[in-house]
Design a protein around this nucleic acid. Structure first.
Lengths: 344, 344
DNA sequence: CTGTTAGCGCATTCAT
DNA sequence: ATGAATGCGCTAACAG
């Protein structure tokens, strides 16, 4: 029952050298007789040595770790982002801290603060409710931050985002070309920028076509159940305003859309004959619902990958020149694509 | 452009005291004049002090962090587990390292090793392909490990698992009561114990009822698409062996089942009239497919929560007595429940 | 109640 | 090519 980890000092003693020598041998730093090096590596192996990244981090001021904060880990949208980030960080020898902040700005900041306390080398925050608010917190410590889907005008931070407005617009135009005239929007109250952009696209596009953008309701969150439960009230609203049901529903995302489709079918309405339904994201299951769901493909995994790549680039640059360049924050826009299936 | 973080020494200097005093003030350790304490806290606040958990970890030998390894982050099964673990760790002030090891035992071990290098206080591994193999790695460092869904006989580690065998058995019995006689199993090649148990239940239960357990095929993984693509070949096999289609299909999990349902419908077979379909897990979308999916509810989120709770308990105990108790590993079995919907 | 001293495990000067 | 000394930021022991 060996209570203690072996340190480079232990190895040094066993090998009859000093610990700095072991340190060099282990990391291949500086030239040294390959004889002693081999011996040291040998002994380290035998003793089951594992370098303490904690101690190393304290002296080098780099922990080879990054922190990721998302709203909801179990949401398939974020799951894929997490997966993308994890893949890249892991491949580059970085460890990943994960935290969630279910639509709570305070919690989000607390999460980031705790990661800073752990000296992460970089941060990624998806769908931040804070955005530029991190400026004062981060400027002192100089930790780089990459935002995902938090595009704010004049962002102080590097930002990866998807062009929700353009995507939604194209979806709307498709519906209009199809001859749909009573197009309702089923939103999500607890989403930030994504909701804002998508709803704005709905209003704008309908406005341009001289169609009324009046029937809309927001779900409390983006669960399937939420779309299912909210849809009936959306129908009531349509009845009140138009005297009949919508002939198309644009949903905040696929989950909400799936719930809405089910609810429509429960009421005896046919999709897409009576009501067309469009989602957003193109999650895996969208291709397998009945009817299959037309939607907008947002490359979530790739966005996670890209965010991590940008962050790691930043860290590498930091190693070179000492922040003199101070280049402007990068903005990387993803555009996605329309995916037409059966529901619209 | 403050390149340097403020340390307790900086605060000490500003306050005209020694740094240990600051340390105590900040953590409320030992009694001291509340006057100076207030002043110190005040100054720390003003200077934007954040304690370095790296340095603290080095001296206390506790990092207040845990490492979690799962097979696939984006799989809804694991997503919920991650969420459960994260919720509990976060609530207790621990940070969470997340890593994935897509069905690769070596990768899994590498992940655990890297977490050990980071001095995590505890580890959780879901669906481990290594299991007791961690014994030699962990005994030296004494880091506790909790396994999820990796129940091996005579496990050396604490283990949270779901009783897949019993669950599957009840599902089978339901189908048999319904009068189904040609029951096929659509599995998943890349799953470990879960696959083994579920398939074994299928064989055993059918055997007990004198029914043939002959038609079975394994998907390459547990994606919807995988179930969709593999089902046709399962039908061919049934045709060859029985001369007709199965009247029921038990799938490895809900994702595979959803793909299978879609493929069946594509072939003009009705679910459940011609073929009943049962999934496993009860993921959110299962209640919203057409037809809605009958399945077995596995409390994934709760299992994640429980795993984290057990681990944190272990850590608290460790603080007390010095590992003398050495109690036997706990085993916590979850049982789940049958969820009957339209598909079977 | 507070200051002094020491050391966690490692990397990094500087000597030699 | 290697050893001695120093410090990263913090907590823990012990004085005072």
């Amino acid at each position: 029952m060996n209570r203690k980890r072996v340190s480079i000092k232990d190895i040094a003693q066993a090998a009859g050298v000093s610990h700095p020598t072991v340190s060099r041998a282990l990391r291949g730093k500086g030239r040294m007789s390959s004889a002693t090096r081999a011996r040291i590596l040998q002994i380290a192996e035998e003793m089951g040595y594992t370098p303490s990244l904690v101690a190393r981090g304290l002296v080098t001021q780099r922990t080879e770790s990054v922190g990721l904060v998302v709203a909801d880990i179990a949401d398939p949208f974020y799951s894929e982002i997490i997966k993308g980030v994890e893949q890249v960080t892991q491949a580059n020898g970085f460890s990943l801290f994960l935290g969630s902040a279910i639509d709570d700005a305070d919690q989000e900041v607390r999460m980031v603060r705790s990661f800073l306390g752990r000296h992460v080398d970089g941060l990624i925050v998806s769908s931040s409710q804070v955005g530029n608010g991190y400026q004062p917190i981060l400027e002192d410590v100089g930790t780089p931050l990459v935002l995902i889907n938090t595009h704010v005008d004049g962002s102080q931070f590097h930002s990866i985002y998807h062009q929700d407005f353009q995507g939604s617009q194209q979806m709307l135009q498709h519906l209009i070309r199809q001859g749909r005239r009573r197009i309702a929007y089923l939103g999500n109250r607890s989403a930030g920028r994504a909701q804002t952009e998508r709803k704005r696209a709905w209003q704008t596009t309908l406005g341009q076509e001289g169609l009324p953008a009046k029937v809309t309701l927001d779900c409390p969150n983006s669960h399937i159940q939420s779309g299912f439960a909210t849809l009936p009230r959306l129908l009531e609203q349509a009845q009140r305003i138009w005297g009949e049901a919508p002939d198309a529903i644009v949903a905040y995302n696929d989950l909400v859309a799936i719930g809405a489709m089910k609810a429509l079918q429960r009421q005896g309405l046919r999709v897409p004959e009576d009501v067309a339904v469009m989602g957003f994201d193109d999650i895996e299951v969208a291709a397998f619902t009945s009817p299959t769901l037309s939607t907008w493909r947002q490359p979530r995994y790739e966005m996670g990958v890209r965010a991590a790549e940008v962050l790691l680039d930043l860290l590498r640059e930091e190693d070179g020149r000492r922040e003199d360049g101070e280049e402007p924050p990068r903005e990387i826009a993803f555009s996605g694509e329309l995916v037409l299936r059966e529901s619209a």
